[in-house]
Structure formats: C-alpha cells, structure tokens
Simulated assay, not measured.
Amino acid sequence: MNTCILMARIVQAPELRYTQDNQTPVASMIVEFEAGREEDPPMTLKVVGWGNLATDIQQGYQVGDRVILQGSLRMNTIERPEGYKEKRAEFSVSRIYKQDGGFSTSVSSSPSTPAASPRPSNVVPLNYNKAPNPAPVAPSPESVTVPSDFASSDDEPDLDEIPF
C-alpha cells in the first residue's frame, strides 16, 4: 500500500481548477520540506487534492501554512519539448492537517472547518529533532518520601540478605 505522511510548508498558493469531463474540482499547490541533511536545500513537491478536499484546500490554506499531509506518492512522466522524458514526483493528498490542529479530509461526509477540529494526538512539530535533548534530572534524596508501610522496622527480616 502506498501511503505517506509528510510535514511541510506551503510555498505556492493552492490553485483550483476543474476536470473537463465531469467538472471535478482539483487543487494543486507546491510544498517545501526539510532535506535529510542540514547542508542540502529544502525539497519541493507538487501536491494535488481532488473533489471536496480540493475546495477545502483552496479556501482554507495559504502560502506559509505549515501542514501535515497524508496520501500517496506517484511518479509522473512528462514529455519535454526538447525530446526527452522527465519524471516528477506528485503527492495525491487524502487528508491534510494544519499544524495548529485544523483538519480536512476527502472521506468526510460533511465539509470540515479547519479551525473546529481538535489537534490529533500523534502530530509531532516540524522542529522536533532540532531541539537539544535535556539531560534527565534525578530527584534529590531529600525529595523522596517513603511511605510508613515500607519503613524498616526491627521485627521485619532484611530481605537484601537473602541469596538468590
């Protein structure tokens, strides 16, 4: 199954057009995401949404929005006027989430409003791997309290002395 999830930023405004045969709405936009290495430039990708999702994308998203995209990736072959074939990646989106928690999907029965949906619990911010990890802090011995049930008394045997 070809399913991908990408975190990206919209760099070209969504453009809405319609198919010739049945007038299905199609939205396309360009998104940018970080490359695998710091010295590499950001990568761009064409994103396409269909049907009700296309109109939601065109109305609710704009340049600069940080989004999480769920969908499938495919390679298109384009005949160039110079006589060679070029392959380009295209992402067909099935769900789109705004980084602030909005959500749109093509499988919903009613049009969704991006601001009304709660933030998904599995969303990781784009700069998650950029922040240094803080060192774990152990509690000081003074702050640890031992319940009275576990306090040692003279009539209980010392279990640390039992050989295993």
Rank of each mutant, 00 (worst) to 15 (best):
P114F: 07
R119D: 07
A13E: 15
T19N: 05
T113W: 00
T77V: 15
V26F: 07
A89M: 12
I30Q: 14
P136K: 03
N52I: 01
I5S: 11
D21G: 00
L53E: 02
K130W: 10
L73I: 11
G60A: 06
D154T: 10
A27M: 04
V107K: 04
V48Q: 08
D56W: 03
K87G: 01
I10F: 04
D160T: 14
V123S: 04
V137I: 13
A115L: 00
E39M: 13
P118L: 07
G36L: 15
S92K: 15
G83E: 04
V63A: 06
F33H: 12
V31A: 03
P141I: 02
E90T: 14
G71V: 02
G71N: 05
Q70M: 15
V47M: 05
Q23C: 05
D149C: 07
Q70R: 14
M75K: 15
L159V: 09
N133Y: 14
N2D: 13
N22T: 08
S108A: 07
Y84C: 04
A13F: 04
S110I: 01
S110E: 08
S110M: 00
L6Y: 07
Y61V: 05
M7Y: 09
A54K: 03
Q58S: 15
N52A: 12
E38M: 14
P163S: 06
N129A: 12
C4L: 13
Q20D: 13
E161K: 13
V146K: 06
D160M: 08
R37F: 06
E161F: 10
V107D: 09
P163V: 08
S108L: 02
S152N: 10
A131Q: 09
G71C: 02
P125V: 03
G51A: 10
